[in-house]
Computed example of a mutant assay.
Amino acid sequence: MLTVESLKKSYDETAGRKAGRHDDTRTYAVGGVDFEVHDGELFTLLGPSGCGKTTTLRSIAGLERPTSGRVTLGGRVLFDAAQGVNMRASRRGFGMVFQSYAIWPHMSVFKNVSFPLEVMPRAKRPGRKEIEERVGQVLDVTELGSYASRPATKLSGGQQQRLALARALVTHPELMLLDEPLSNLDAKLRETMRFELKRLQRELHLTAIYVTHDQSEALVMSSRIAVMNQGRIEQIGKPREIYTKPATRFVAEFIGTSNFLEGTVASVHGQEVQVDTEHGRLVAHEVDKAPAVGESVLVSIRPECVDLSRQPRGNVPNEWSGKVLTRAFMGDVVDHIVGVGKLEIRNRSNPNLSIPPGTEVHFSIAPDKVTLVPVD
């Protein structure tokens, strides 16, 4: 549906290319990104502050003019630097919801939603009856129907968020652009609204691009995720794939928590890869392309994949012993830090398992839970 090709954005346009030289001295906020957003999916741009995700979104929206690249929606060219095409934001027809909901305080809930229809060009503007029907439909979908006559300022934070969404939906946009719309909500309401937004997106078959720095939010809501770092995309994939098979160390560190060990590939037999580390040998099952013998790799192991016990199991791969250094009760889980020599391994367990510091323990990791990340 939406295609972004070689998109770059620099705010240092005065630098450009030096005369007689081929090197580009500009600093790029977005350094050349490529991705496609498919019909009916929620595609998330995820990354830390300053990684270029919001600049990418604003470039798609037409609120920023990219330095180079191409953006198309279906058969329409929205931006093409080579051809000199840059369609105005108002003509792109996107629905947009940003971190600030920009609710009009002097208007009722109904008028906030109807306003985008009322200011359309006369040739495209719906009649009064159609406006009432469309506003009523989106208010019902967002569960705001009973608040139609209420002043917008009298809504709760979650209701204001749904109002901003309803106002964007009423124009029947081909694409929704959502820039951290939940960041102003408290933690409990954010969690509720994640599922609410996902429900609406699925029920209405919305195609949306969602920008966030919140890993949990991205994992819960996304059809696919593009993890960004320093203006570039490190990995694109489904949430489970991004979490369980990170392509780079940055992705493994940014998405959740991981234990890291440096190692060298000792042998490869089919899908079984044996890796020698400073603290012992680990066996991994690499379904995709296996690394070569002698290659340096980074071993990534998620804390919940570390199976901790007081007694050795025996005859299981990747079983090591160590001592509990500290533990932390976190409500739904207990984290243990286990020392193996100078190495510290984090385990995340059911709260029924809580082992005091100083206890000798054994832990194992299933080979299919050992992820091998290429060394940069």
Score class of each variant (00 low, 15 high):
V119N: 15
R70H: 15
R65T: 14
L117H: 07
R92V: 13
R65D: 05
Y101L: 06
S108P: 00
V77W: 08
S90H: 13
C51Q: 08
M87N: 12
A61D: 06
L78Q: 03
C51G: 07
G69D: 05
P48H: 12
R88C: 12
Q83G: 09
F110M: 05
G50W: 02
Y101P: 11
S90C: 14
A81G: 06
P48F: 00
L117W: 06
G50R: 09
W104Q: 12
K111C: 03
A89N: 04
G69N: 06
M96A: 11
V113P: 09
P66K: 01
S49P: 04
F79T: 07
V71Y: 10
F98R: 06
G52H: 05
T56H: 06
T67S: 07
E64M: 06
F94H: 07
T67D: 02
G50N: 11
K53Y: 00
S68L: 03
W104K: 15
R76N: 02
G84F: 09
R91F: 12
L63F: 11
A102M: 11
G69S: 10
G84P: 13
S90G: 11
M96D: 05
V85T: 14
Q83R: 14
G50T: 01
A82L: 12
A89W: 08
G93S: 09
V113T: 10
G62A: 01
P105I: 05
F94P: 08
T67L: 13
G50V: 04
G75K: 14
G95W: 07
S114V: 02
I60S: 05
S59Q: 08
F110R: 12
K53E: 03
F98P: 00
F115E: 04
V85M: 03
P66E: 10
G62I: 02
N86H: 15
V85W: 02
L57F: 10
W104A: 12
R92S: 09
I103H: 09
V97M: 13
Q83W: 04
Q83A: 15
G62T: 08
G84N: 11
A89H: 10
L63C: 04
A102R: 15
F115L: 15
M96P: 07
F98C: 07
A61Q: 03
L73W: 09
T55R: 01
I103Q: 09
I60A: 06
L57R: 05
G95L: 10
R92L: 10
I60E: 10
M96S: 11
K111V: 06
T55Y: 05
K111H: 14
R58Y: 09
G62Y: 00
T67K: 08
E64L: 06
V113S: 03
